[in-house]
Amino acid sequence: MIRTTRPISRRSLIRAGTAGAAVGLFTPSILRAQAAYPNRNINVVIATGQGGGAETTARAFTNVLREDLGVDFEFEFHPGAGGQVGYELYASRRDHDGYNLLYSNMHPEIITYATQNTNYDLPEDIIHFAKTGGTPIVFYVGADSPIETVEQLIEEGRRRTVTIATSRLPHPGTIGMLSLADAVGADFNLIPFGGGNPTSMAAITGETDAAVLTAGVAISLGDQVRVLGTFRPSPDFDDQMGNPPSVNDVFDTTIPGLELANGWAIHTDVWKNMPEVRERLVTAIRSAFDDPELRAQYEAVNYPFAGVEYGDEAVCAQIREETIELARRYEDRIRES
Protein backbone atom coordinates (compact mmCIF):
# COMPACT_ATOMS: atom_id res chain seq x y z
CA MET A 1 0.00 0.00 0.00
CA ILE A 2 1.33 3.37 -0.92
CA ARG A 3 0.45 6.66 0.58
CA THR A 4 1.78 10.00 1.54
CA THR A 5 2.04 10.90 5.15
CA ARG A 6 2.78 14.30 6.48
CA PRO A 7 3.03 14.33 10.22
CA ILE A 8 1.80 17.80 11.03
CA SER A 9 4.12 20.06 12.87
CA ARG A 10 2.87 23.58 13.21
CA ARG A 11 6.33 25.04 13.09
CA SER A 12 7.26 23.24 9.90
CA LEU A 13 3.98 24.21 8.30
CA ILE A 14 4.51 27.87 9.00
CA ARG A 15 8.12 27.71 7.95
CA ALA A 16 7.37 25.87 4.72
CA GLY A 17 4.48 28.18 4.02
CA THR A 18 6.52 31.30 4.50
CA ALA A 19 9.39 29.96 2.48
CA GLY A 20 7.03 28.95 -0.29
CA ALA A 21 5.42 32.36 -0.39
CA ALA A 22 8.79 34.09 -0.43
CA VAL A 23 10.05 31.92 -3.27
CA GLY A 24 6.86 32.54 -5.18
CA LEU A 25 7.11 36.30 -4.79
CA PHE A 26 10.71 36.78 -5.69
CA THR A 27 11.41 34.18 -8.34
CA PRO A 28 11.00 35.30 -11.93
CA SER A 29 8.41 33.17 -13.69
CA ILE A 30 10.85 31.75 -16.24
CA LEU A 31 13.04 30.36 -13.51
CA ARG A 32 10.02 28.85 -11.81
CA ALA A 33 9.01 27.09 -14.99
CA GLN A 34 12.35 25.29 -15.14
CA ALA A 35 12.70 24.93 -11.40
CA ALA A 36 15.81 23.24 -10.15
CA TYR A 37 15.83 19.74 -8.68
CA PRO A 38 13.74 18.82 -6.79
CA ASN A 39 10.47 20.34 -7.97
CA ARG A 40 8.08 17.53 -7.09
CA ASN A 41 7.64 14.90 -4.40
CA ILE A 42 10.35 12.31 -3.92
CA ASN A 43 9.42 8.67 -3.70
CA VAL A 44 11.18 6.45 -1.14
CA VAL A 45 11.27 2.67 -1.59
CA ILE A 46 11.87 0.59 1.52
CA ALA A 47 12.61 -3.12 1.18
CA THR A 48 11.15 -4.11 4.56
CA GLY A 49 7.66 -3.89 6.01
CA GLN A 50 5.94 -1.02 7.70
CA GLY A 51 6.68 -0.12 11.28
CA GLY A 52 10.25 -1.44 11.16
CA GLY A 53 13.45 0.36 12.10
CA ALA A 54 14.08 1.41 8.50
CA GLU A 55 10.79 3.27 8.30
CA THR A 56 11.25 5.02 11.61
CA THR A 57 14.73 6.32 10.85
CA ALA A 58 13.88 7.14 7.23
CA ARG A 59 10.99 9.29 8.42
CA ALA A 60 13.19 11.07 10.94
CA PHE A 61 15.42 12.07 8.01
CA THR A 62 12.72 12.97 5.54
CA ASN A 63 11.03 15.13 8.16
CA VAL A 64 14.23 17.19 8.22
CA LEU A 65 15.04 16.93 4.50
CA ARG A 66 11.56 18.09 3.58
CA GLU A 67 12.27 21.55 4.90
CA ASP A 68 15.60 21.82 3.14
CA LEU A 69 14.51 20.47 -0.23
CA GLY A 70 11.04 22.00 -0.09
CA VAL A 71 9.27 18.89 -1.35
CA ASP A 72 7.44 16.05 0.31
CA PHE A 73 8.43 12.40 0.54
CA GLU A 74 6.17 9.47 -0.27
CA PHE A 75 6.95 6.01 1.04
CA GLU A 76 6.33 2.62 -0.44
CA PHE A 77 7.14 -0.70 1.21
CA HIS A 78 8.10 -3.85 -0.64
CA PRO A 79 9.23 -6.48 1.84
CA GLY A 80 10.17 -10.00 0.85
CA ALA A 81 13.11 -12.31 0.26
CA GLY A 82 15.49 -10.41 2.53
CA GLY A 83 15.26 -7.19 0.52
CA GLN A 84 15.46 -8.77 -2.92
CA VAL A 85 11.91 -7.78 -3.84
CA GLY A 86 12.35 -4.13 -2.92
CA TYR A 87 15.74 -3.80 -4.65
CA GLU A 88 14.65 -5.56 -7.81
CA LEU A 89 11.51 -3.47 -8.02
CA TYR A 90 13.47 -0.29 -7.40
CA ALA A 91 16.06 -1.16 -10.05
CA SER A 92 13.69 -2.23 -12.78
CA ARG A 93 10.33 -0.55 -12.21
CA ARG A 94 11.03 2.88 -10.81
CA ASP A 95 12.04 5.75 -13.06
CA HIS A 96 15.74 6.55 -13.09
CA ASP A 97 15.07 10.25 -12.65
CA GLY A 98 16.37 11.20 -9.23
CA TYR A 99 12.86 11.29 -7.80
CA ASN A 100 13.06 7.70 -6.60
CA LEU A 101 15.31 6.85 -3.69
CA LEU A 102 15.90 3.68 -1.74
CA TYR A 103 16.33 3.67 2.04
CA SER A 104 18.12 0.58 3.11
CA ASN A 105 19.07 -1.70 5.98
CA MET A 106 22.48 -2.00 4.39
CA HIS A 107 24.02 -5.10 5.95
CA PRO A 108 21.22 -7.66 5.66
CA GLU A 109 20.28 -6.44 2.20
CA ILE A 110 23.87 -6.62 0.97
CA ILE A 111 24.15 -10.12 2.44
CA THR A 112 21.05 -11.13 0.50
CA TYR A 113 22.61 -9.69 -2.63
CA ALA A 114 25.83 -11.60 -2.04
CA THR A 115 24.16 -14.95 -1.44
CA GLN A 116 21.24 -14.97 -3.90
CA ASN A 117 20.89 -14.87 -7.68
CA THR A 118 19.57 -11.38 -8.11
CA ASN A 119 18.67 -9.46 -11.26
CA TYR A 120 20.37 -6.32 -9.98
CA ASP A 121 23.98 -5.53 -9.39
CA LEU A 122 25.56 -3.57 -6.55
CA PRO A 123 26.96 -1.02 -7.28
CA GLU A 124 26.35 -1.20 -11.06
CA ASP A 125 22.57 -0.73 -10.83
CA ILE A 126 22.01 0.64 -7.35
CA ILE A 127 24.59 2.54 -5.36
CA HIS A 128 24.53 3.23 -1.62
CA PHE A 129 25.76 6.78 -1.28
CA ALA A 130 25.02 8.01 2.23
CA LYS A 131 25.23 6.06 5.44
CA THR A 132 22.94 7.59 8.04
CA GLY A 133 24.02 5.58 11.04
CA GLY A 134 24.74 2.17 12.43
CA THR A 135 23.67 0.09 15.40
CA PRO A 136 25.90 -2.59 16.93
CA ILE A 137 24.77 -6.20 16.84
CA VAL A 138 24.20 -7.57 20.34
CA PHE A 139 22.72 -10.73 21.84
CA TYR A 140 20.45 -11.01 24.82
CA VAL A 141 18.24 -13.28 26.89
CA GLY A 142 14.82 -12.69 28.46
CA ALA A 143 14.83 -11.20 31.96
CA ASP A 144 13.68 -14.53 33.45
CA SER A 145 16.40 -16.57 31.81
CA PRO A 146 18.79 -18.49 34.10
CA ILE A 147 21.67 -17.45 31.85
CA GLU A 148 23.39 -14.40 33.35
CA THR A 149 26.58 -13.89 31.37
CA VAL A 150 28.13 -14.55 27.99
CA GLU A 151 30.47 -17.11 29.58
CA GLN A 152 27.47 -19.05 30.87
CA LEU A 153 25.88 -18.97 27.44
CA ILE A 154 29.02 -20.44 25.91
CA GLU A 155 29.29 -23.01 28.72
CA GLU A 156 25.70 -24.11 27.97
CA GLY A 157 26.54 -24.20 24.28
CA ARG A 158 29.41 -26.59 24.92
CA ARG A 159 27.15 -28.90 26.91
CA ARG A 160 24.04 -28.86 24.73
CA THR A 161 22.50 -27.17 21.70
CA VAL A 162 21.65 -23.59 22.53
CA THR A 163 18.86 -22.05 20.43
CA ILE A 164 19.29 -18.46 19.30
CA ALA A 165 16.48 -16.45 17.70
CA THR A 166 17.52 -14.27 14.79
CA SER A 167 15.59 -12.06 12.42
CA ARG A 168 16.63 -14.06 9.35
CA LEU A 169 19.55 -16.24 8.33
CA PRO A 170 21.08 -13.79 5.85
CA HIS A 171 21.76 -11.28 8.64
CA PRO A 172 24.92 -10.00 10.35
CA GLY A 173 23.57 -11.31 13.67
CA THR A 174 23.52 -14.86 12.32
CA ILE A 175 27.05 -14.52 11.01
CA GLY A 176 28.20 -13.17 14.37
CA MET A 177 26.72 -15.99 16.42
CA LEU A 178 27.94 -18.68 14.02
CA SER A 179 31.48 -17.34 14.02
CA LEU A 180 31.40 -17.09 17.81
CA ALA A 181 30.20 -20.70 18.03
CA ASP A 182 33.00 -21.85 15.72
CA ALA A 183 35.63 -19.91 17.63
CA VAL A 184 34.77 -21.25 21.08
CA GLY A 185 33.45 -24.68 20.15
CA ALA A 186 29.84 -24.14 21.20
CA ASP A 187 26.74 -25.50 19.48
CA PHE A 188 24.40 -22.67 18.49
CA ASN A 189 21.24 -23.43 16.56
CA LEU A 190 19.99 -20.25 14.86
CA ILE A 191 16.25 -19.99 14.42
CA PRO A 192 14.94 -17.29 12.07
CA PHE A 193 11.77 -15.61 13.32
CA GLY A 194 11.27 -13.25 10.37
CA GLY A 195 11.50 -9.80 11.92
CA GLY A 196 12.59 -7.94 15.01
CA ASN A 197 9.38 -8.20 17.01
CA PRO A 198 8.90 -11.98 16.86
CA THR A 199 12.63 -12.45 17.47
CA SER A 200 12.50 -10.45 20.69
CA MET A 201 9.33 -12.24 21.67
CA ALA A 202 11.04 -15.63 21.28
CA ALA A 203 13.72 -14.69 23.78
CA ILE A 204 11.32 -13.03 26.22
CA THR A 205 8.86 -15.95 26.24
CA GLY A 206 11.64 -18.50 26.44
CA GLU A 207 10.98 -20.24 23.13
CA THR A 208 14.69 -19.85 22.43
CA ASP A 209 17.57 -19.51 24.87
CA ALA A 210 18.73 -16.17 23.48
CA ALA A 211 18.29 -13.75 20.60
CA VAL A 212 20.66 -11.75 18.42
CA LEU A 213 19.55 -8.37 17.07
CA THR A 214 20.50 -4.71 17.02
CA ALA A 215 21.29 -2.68 20.10
CA GLY A 216 18.42 -0.34 19.22
CA VAL A 217 15.87 -3.11 19.68
CA ALA A 218 17.53 -4.34 22.88
CA ILE A 219 17.43 -0.83 24.35
CA SER A 220 13.80 -0.34 23.46
CA LEU A 221 12.91 -3.53 25.36
CA GLY A 222 14.34 -2.07 28.55
CA ASP A 223 14.59 -4.37 31.56
CA GLN A 224 12.65 -7.17 29.88
CA VAL A 225 15.89 -8.42 28.37
CA ARG A 226 19.45 -8.83 29.60
CA VAL A 227 22.14 -8.02 27.05
CA LEU A 228 24.96 -10.56 27.32
CA GLY A 229 27.43 -9.28 24.81
CA THR A 230 28.12 -7.02 21.86
CA PHE A 231 29.98 -7.54 18.59
CA ARG A 232 30.89 -3.87 18.27
CA PRO A 233 31.60 -1.96 21.46
CA SER A 234 30.21 1.56 21.34
CA PRO A 235 30.06 3.59 24.57
CA ASP A 236 26.91 5.50 23.55
CA PHE A 237 24.94 2.30 23.16
CA ASP A 238 26.66 0.22 25.83
CA ASP A 239 25.70 2.70 28.55
CA GLN A 240 22.05 2.07 27.89
CA MET A 241 22.40 -1.72 27.91
CA GLY A 242 24.24 -2.22 31.20
CA ASN A 243 27.67 -2.18 29.49
CA PRO A 244 27.76 -5.66 27.99
CA PRO A 245 31.26 -7.03 27.31
CA SER A 246 32.72 -7.16 23.84
CA VAL A 247 32.80 -10.70 22.50
CA ASN A 248 36.29 -10.31 21.09
CA ASP A 249 37.62 -9.12 24.46
CA VAL A 250 36.11 -11.99 26.42
CA PHE A 251 37.14 -14.82 24.10
CA ASP A 252 40.11 -13.24 22.43
CA THR A 253 38.52 -13.73 19.02
CA THR A 254 38.75 -11.62 15.85
CA ILE A 255 35.14 -11.47 14.75
CA PRO A 256 34.51 -8.36 12.60
CA GLY A 257 32.79 -5.48 14.41
CA LEU A 258 29.29 -6.28 13.28
CA GLU A 259 26.68 -3.58 12.94
CA LEU A 260 23.52 -2.87 11.03
CA ALA A 261 23.82 0.35 9.08
CA ASN A 262 21.07 2.35 7.44
CA GLY A 263 21.57 4.52 4.43
CA TRP A 264 20.33 6.06 1.23
CA ALA A 265 20.81 4.49 -2.17
CA ILE A 266 19.96 5.60 -5.69
CA HIS A 267 20.06 4.31 -9.27
CA THR A 268 23.71 4.26 -10.32
CA ASP A 269 23.10 5.89 -13.71
CA VAL A 270 21.40 8.81 -11.97
CA TRP A 271 24.32 9.07 -9.58
CA LYS A 272 26.80 9.13 -12.44
CA ASN A 273 24.96 11.17 -15.06
CA MET A 274 22.91 13.70 -13.12
CA PRO A 275 25.40 15.71 -11.08
CA GLU A 276 22.80 18.32 -10.07
CA VAL A 277 20.71 15.61 -8.40
CA ARG A 278 23.74 14.10 -6.73
CA GLU A 279 25.01 17.43 -5.39
CA ARG A 280 21.62 18.52 -4.10
CA LEU A 281 20.88 15.25 -2.32
CA VAL A 282 24.30 14.90 -0.77
CA THR A 283 24.29 18.50 0.48
CA ALA A 284 20.84 18.15 1.96
CA ILE A 285 21.55 14.83 3.66
CA ARG A 286 24.87 16.09 5.00
CA SER A 287 23.41 19.21 6.49
CA ALA A 288 20.56 17.26 8.07
CA PHE A 289 23.12 15.85 10.50
CA ASP A 290 23.86 19.37 11.76
CA ASP A 291 20.21 20.24 12.20
CA PRO A 292 19.11 19.89 15.85
CA GLU A 293 15.71 18.92 14.49
CA LEU A 294 17.12 15.50 13.49
CA ARG A 295 17.95 14.63 17.08
CA ALA A 296 14.53 15.88 18.12
CA GLN A 297 12.94 13.58 15.54
CA TYR A 298 14.84 10.59 16.91
CA GLU A 299 13.99 11.47 20.49
CA ALA A 300 10.33 11.92 19.62
CA VAL A 301 10.14 8.22 18.72
CA ASN A 302 12.41 7.04 21.54
CA TYR A 303 15.14 5.97 19.17
CA PRO A 304 18.74 6.15 20.34
CA PHE A 305 20.49 9.00 18.55
CA ALA A 306 23.81 7.34 19.29
CA GLY A 307 25.37 5.89 16.20
CA VAL A 308 23.76 8.43 13.88
CA GLU A 309 26.63 9.62 11.76
CA TYR A 310 27.19 10.52 8.16
CA GLY A 311 29.20 8.25 5.91
CA ASP A 312 29.91 9.23 2.31
CA GLU A 313 30.02 7.16 -0.84
CA ALA A 314 33.44 5.77 0.04
CA VAL A 315 32.26 4.63 3.49
CA CYS A 316 29.29 2.93 1.86
CA ALA A 317 31.52 1.24 -0.68
CA GLN A 318 33.72 -0.08 2.10
CA ILE A 319 30.69 -1.46 3.97
CA ARG A 320 29.50 -3.06 0.76
CA GLU A 321 32.82 -4.73 -0.03
CA GLU A 322 33.38 -5.96 3.51
CA THR A 323 29.85 -7.27 3.89
CA ILE A 324 29.92 -9.08 0.55
CA GLU A 325 33.22 -10.67 1.51
CA LEU A 326 31.86 -11.69 4.92
CA ALA A 327 28.66 -13.09 3.45
CA ARG A 328 30.51 -15.15 0.82
CA ARG A 329 32.78 -16.52 3.51
CA TYR A 330 29.83 -17.66 5.63
CA GLU A 331 27.46 -18.62 2.82
CA ASP A 332 27.98 -22.36 3.15
CA ARG A 333 28.14 -22.21 6.92
CA ILE A 334 24.67 -20.57 7.00
CA ARG A 335 23.25 -23.17 4.64
CA GLU A 336 24.61 -26.02 6.67
CA SER A 337 23.53 -24.64 10.02
Binding site: Q50, G51, E55, T56, N197, S200, M201, I204, S220, L221, G222, Q224, V301
Partner: peptide, 15 residues
Protein backbone atom coordinates in the same frame (compact mmCIF):
# COMPACT_ATOMS: atom_id res chain seq x y z
CA UNK B 1 2.12 -5.79 28.44
CA UNK B 2 5.48 -6.41 26.76
CA UNK B 3 5.72 -3.67 24.17
CA UNK B 4 5.84 -6.11 21.26
CA UNK B 5 2.96 -5.88 18.77
CA UNK B 6 1.12 -9.11 17.98
CA UNK B 7 -0.19 -8.11 14.56
CA UNK B 8 0.03 -5.49 11.85
CA UNK B 9 -2.65 -3.21 13.31
CA UNK B 10 -0.99 -3.37 16.69
CA UNK B 11 2.35 -2.53 15.04
CA UNK B 12 0.91 0.63 13.51
CA UNK B 13 -0.66 1.59 16.83
CA UNK B 14 2.75 1.22 18.41
CA UNK B 15 4.26 3.60 15.86
Amino acid sequence: AIGVPGGSTAAIMMV
